[in-house]
Every structure is written in structure tokens, then in C-alpha cells.
């Protein structure tokens, strides 16, 4: 079953989606409008880029310290939590055990994010960014 459909089958998952790293495409299911899903995709991409940049810096201080490549991030709100793994995101209610279940499913279904995520992110922007990064 596709990861978004699998997530949406869990009670308490408000919305789930997938976005393109280049930022121009997204798909989703759940209680978001198209415009809000577009905004969520941009937000997720920006945060993913930011934490990946941070992990590159950690790695330059302590190589292979266990942080890089970043797999995703979580924002915990009062009633709602946003989880992002790779290029998938989910908005979930703060119900008991739901966060752990969603994270387990997302990590298992998306798989380990490889080291080329930043290259994929930047390569779409144009130019020979790979050389500048590595």
C-alpha cells in the first residue's frame, strides 16, 4: 500500500502527502486545501534543507557522528504534530502512541535517506552545484 494511504488509514492522522524536492509538485490526502498543501510542501522542503545544512556542519566537526544524512524532523505543537521523513510529510493529532506509530511507519516505508538528498535538492536549481557542495 502506498505510504500516504497507509498513513491516512490510521485514526488521528489529519493529512499526509509527498512533495518534490524541487518544490514545484506535491500530492496529498486529508484535511488540507490544495493551497495549504502547497504551503506545507514548501515549509517541509525549507526545513529539510535547513536541517541538512546543519548536519553538514556537524559532520565537519565530528565526522560520522551519526547525524548525517538527516532522515527527517518533527515539530510538536499543542494539539498537532508535523512529521517529515524524506519527501513525505504528515499532520497528526497529539494522541497517545500515535507519534511513535507514525514515525515507525514512515521510517520503515520511506527507507533510509541516502547522502545524495542535498545534491538532488540543489541540482534542480541549475548550475554545477554539486562541485560547490562537495
Amino acid at each position: 500500500m502506498h505510504i500516504v494511504k497507509q498513513l491516512m488509514a490510521i485514526p488521528g492522522v489529519i493529512a499526509a502527502g509527498e512533495y518534490a524536492y524541487r518544490g514545484d509538485r506535491f500530492s496529498f490526502e486529508g484535511a488540507l486545501t490544495d493551497e495549504f498543501a502547497r504551503m506545507a510542501s514548501i515549509l517541509c522542503r525549507a526545513n529539510t534543507l535547513s536541517v541538512n545544512m546543519q548536519s553538514e556542519i556537524f559532520d565537519s566537526f565530528a565526522e560520522n557522528c551519526g547525524c548525517r544524512p538527516v532522515q527527517g524532523w518533527i515539530v510538536r505543537g499543542r494539539d498537532i504534530t508535523v512529521c517529515a521523513i524524506g519527501n513525505y510529510f504528515s499532520f497528526i493529532e497529539n494522541r497517545e502512541d500515535l507519534l511513535n506509530d507514525v514515525m515507525t511507519i514512515m521510517r520503515a516505508k520511506v527507507g533510509d535517506i541516502e547522502d545524495d538528498l542535498l545534491v538532488n535538492l540543489y541540482a534542480r536549481l541549475g548550475g554545477d552545484t554539486k562541485e560547490a557542495l562537495y
Binding site: C67, R68, I74, V75, R76, G77, R78, I80, R107
Partner: peptide
């Protein structure tokens, strides 16, 4: 982002923020 999201979408439930996590390898 939480403040902006609530203001733009009208969807409550993010503030006050209760934490952030970065998931490494």
C-alpha cells in the same frame, strides 16, 4: 512557522510549540 501557519490557515493547535526534533541517521 507555527504562528504563521495558524494566522494564514486559521487552523489552531500548533501554539504554544512543544518541541522540535531532528531525526538523524
Amino acid at each position: 512557522e507555527a504562528r504563521g501557519w495558524e494566522a494564514v490557515t486559521g487552523q489552531a493547535g500548533f501554539q504554544p510549540l512543544q518541541g522540535f526534533s531532528v531525526v538523524g541517521l
